[in-house]
Amino acid sequence: MATHVKPREDAPRLERSTPAAPRARRPVPWSAIVRHAVLILFSLAIILPLVWVLILSVKSLPDAYTNRIWPQHFDFSHYGYALQHIPTLPRNILNSVIVTTATVVITTIAAVLAGYALVHLSTPGRAVVLGLLVASMFFPTRVTALIAIWEIQKNLDLLNTTWGLIFPYATLSLALSVFIMRGIFETIPRELADAARIDGANAWTMLWRVMLPLVRNGIVVVIIVNFVTAWGEYLLATTLTNDQEVRTLPVVLASASGGMGAWAWPRIAAVYVMAITPGLVAFAIAQRWYMRGLQEGALKT
């Protein structure tokens, strides 16, 4: 089911490059108006909920209680207030950062090494590995394995610890990440690998010197995928931890349901905005490579 992506040439650019006879301005066709109207509607539907939570996080408390969408008074103090008055919050943020960073580092390294071995080292037995990884993606592993994962963590004395979460987290998107890297490594011609090997490069130098620069867009995709998975993970975090101090940000947010003081809605909304900002900023920065990585082969399914 491989769908190779060959970006086609851009039609308008071709037209523009022919200098002869500038085309007369035609009226915009109806179909284009309808198309953009529909797309703008979808874009608004996506943006408005996020704008709403952003506004909620800077509403004054009385405005929040009246539910008015555009507040009469803005209040930007909620961010600081939440950080100071929700006692575990800085700890929860730190927990999320630690767990996510470790997960992303482990999974990315594992996926790059595995993708490389599966494509360019003609690993004996790779069909078995591939088969298992594929099977795990069509099996509800996350749900079915939960009871035994809890047991493993208990036996390793990792229950109710933050860093213990890293182990199950690293596997959440591992199969997908290996597949993405495999897809990207397959775009590198085998002759390149052969040439490097003939020149005396061993498997490691070949990966490090020759291949890595060529697969960096794929690595961006893998990093983003794993960041999103680990940063927001809820099921394992809520099952494997009990105490508020060891929990991660999503568990704290999921249990918040409004209230007084530090738990007033605008303050929870401020925590929410803090929780989603890193991902969106990372996306804004890495967007170009991410899109390229997707096109190069990450979307090969």
């Binding site: 595995a114 071995a117 690993t123 795990s136 493993i152 182990f167 591992l174 199969a175």
Partner: peptide
């Protein structure tokens, strides 16, 4: 090269299932 993937995959996916 496959070892890191296999450790995590076998330990926290295949074995638990």
């Amino acid at each position: 090269f496959l070892l890191p993937t296999l450790i995590f995959f076998l330990g926290w996916q295949l074995y638990p299932v």
